[in-house]
Simulated scan of single mutants.
Amino acid sequence: MHIHYISEQNSILNHFLAQIRDISIQKDSMRFRKNIERIGEIMAYELSKTLEYKPVTVQTPLGLKPTTTLADHVVLCSILRAGLALHQGFMNFFDEAENGFVSAYRHHYNQDDAFEILVEYQAAPSFQDKNLILIDPMLATGQSIVAVLNQLHLEQKPKEIHIAVVIAAPEGIAYLEEHLPKECHLWVAALDERLNEKNYIIPGLGDAGDLAYGSKL
């Protein structure tokens, strides 16, 4: 797997990452969503450097200008509901992309820490021979991403698979490397220390879906 750690070089990205973690700032859900959206824009820009472009000539009011424009077809696919704000950031840059949405969640079948991933809702276009960008803010165990890709990737073959996450745990990255094709790209805004006994990212930021959209039952 090709892994891209975006925050290794200091940029405004680290400023937004600090704010979404800060318990005194993240209580403002609108600001939290906006910061996640901004992070999505930065990640989309960095990812765009790896795509294919084609030469075009643009007619300006005063003449002709040779330049390049995106040649690849892109499908943005988010895991509900936490992925929505990050999805918006990617969509701000890939404004001609097709869009898909999939629900995946931890089902605690014994009412304890053990769980399985349930994928129940799916609305996605064809991504045959297109660049599939799967978007999810938190990469903890990695099981949700693998379950969703297995659900989506039954009959269609994307040109490339990109996975975009804001915060990742080493355990989740190792799980993806074990279960996904080597040619996949993983884009990580920040790498954290570990998972705790409940498989939550430490130090993390809490529940991204709850912080963005309110607590759930």
Rank of each mutant, 00 (worst) to 15 (best):
R81F: 07
N199H: 15
P125W: 08
Q19H: 09
V119R: 10
L76H: 06
L134M: 11
E183Y: 15
Y105M: 09
V146F: 12
A169P: 06
G172F: 15
L51K: 05
A168M: 11
T69L: 08
I173A: 13
D192G: 09
S24I: 03
C184M: 14
I36A: 03
V56N: 07
P125C: 07
Q19E: 14
I6M: 12
S24C: 02
F90Q: 04
I117W: 08
L70I: 03
Q143L: 09
N14A: 06
E160P: 04
Q19C: 05
I39V: 11
E96N: 08
E120I: 01
F32T: 10
Y213P: 04
I135F: 09
L149T: 10
Y53F: 11
D192V: 10
E98M: 06
A169R: 12
Y45T: 01
L17K: 01
H179E: 15
L62N: 04
E46P: 06
R38Y: 13
N131A: 00
I163L: 13
E96A: 08
I20C: 06
F93G: 01
L132T: 00
S126Y: 04
D28E: 12
C77P: 01
N99A: 03
K54V: 10
K159I: 11
E177F: 05
V165R: 05
I201L: 12
S103H: 12
T141W: 07
E116A: 03
I12V: 06
